[in-house]
């Protein structure tokens, strides 16, 4: 009894202060994936049934709407291509080394951590598809989190709202830099250590700043929803609503490959116009 208790405590301490258990954790992620997959099966059947009994009229309507949306997005993409080319040229003039294009993998969320005190998702892709610890994860609206453990075919993602997560951001309007911390609430981030006099306003959009080298720069993180400035306190309390849909995203994007030199070379070798 005492021996086993001591062994368990030793495992907890070793897991907390060293990296020795990382391979075990990666293995465990692979072990857990089938459980999540089976446990989620009823939901998948329900989804399938919902898709299978849609009427023809509804499908046609949806098809029309999607075509319309695609047209709008293509129009925007054309504008974007021109702006991007111009931007790259300007960056080259300034001798700045900049990401040209990020390689992106679409993955499906197959599970959520059962522990209510942590915000962790389980994804159905892993090392085989280039997801390694540190890989940034996005959804259609903004930054979602980063991979913390990866096995061959599945991985775990720590959301930016987890209370142990923080990421460097900057205000889109004026590039004021700050650190956005998770709070343990799925709909709230907070900026810490921003002085009372700094120029941050309600409604400002925050982008990832790329400092720290973990997340790529320029992805939307959230929007300032409330600022409490108390003259007696050295720092302002700034509440942020994250852009990404933390608890509702089913398909998410993993930005794999540091997208530095390789992507740049691909582009220079005449892969113009193709998908990134």
């Amino acid at each position: 009894m005492l021996l086993l208790g001591a062994l368990a405590i030793a495992l907890i301490v070793v897991g907390r202060y060293t990296n020795w258990l990382a391979p075990v954790r990666d293995f465990a992620t692979g072990l857990a994936a089938p459980f999540h997959w089976i446990a989620e099966a009823p939901g998948r059947v329900a989804d399938w049934a919902e898709g299978a009994v849609v009427s023809r009229a509804e499908l046609e309507e949806e098809n029309d709407r999607l075509k319309h949306q695609l047209l709008l997005l293509q129009h925007r993409a054309q504008l974007l291509a021109a702006v991007k080319a111009e931007n790259t040229k300007l960056k080259e003039l300034m001798n700045a080394r900049e990401l040209v294009d990020d390689r992106v993998v679409v993955t499906e969320v197959i599970g959520v951590s059962p522990d209510p005190q942590e915000h962790v998702l389980v994804l159905d892709k892993g090392r085989e598809d280039g997801l390694v610890p540190g890989t940034p994860i996005l959804d259609a609206h903004g930054l979602l989190g980063q991979v913390i453990e990866a096995s061959a075919g599945s991985s775990r993602v720590l959301l930016i709202t987890d209370s142990s997560h923080a990421l460097p951001v900057q205000v889109q309007r004026n590039n004021v830099r700050a650190v956005a911390e998770g709070t343990g609430n799925l709909y709230l981030l907070q900026l810490r250590h921003v002085s009372n006099t700094s120029d941050v306003r309600e409604g400002d959009v925050l982008l990832s700043s790329g400092l720290g080298g973990r997340f790529p720069a320029g992805y939307p993180v959230g929007q300032v929803i409330a600022i409490h400035r108390d003259p007696g306190q050295p720092f302002a309390d700034i509440d942020i609503r994250p852009r990404a849909q933390m608890s509702r995203s089913r398909f998410v994007l993993a930005v794999t490959g540091k997208a530095g030199d390789d992507a740049l070379e691909d582009e220079l070798n005449g892969a113009d116009g193709g998908a990134p």
Partner: peptide, 25 residues
């Protein structure tokens, strides 16, 4: 119970050893 807890830690992604300790207790 310790072994069952260890398996639960591995599957749920909790800190390795936490359920092993609590279930053994």
């Amino acid at each position: 119970a310790w072994l069952a807890g260890l398996i639960q830690d591995l599957v749920t992604g909790a800190a390795i050893g936490s359920h092993a300790l609590s279930l053994a207790a």
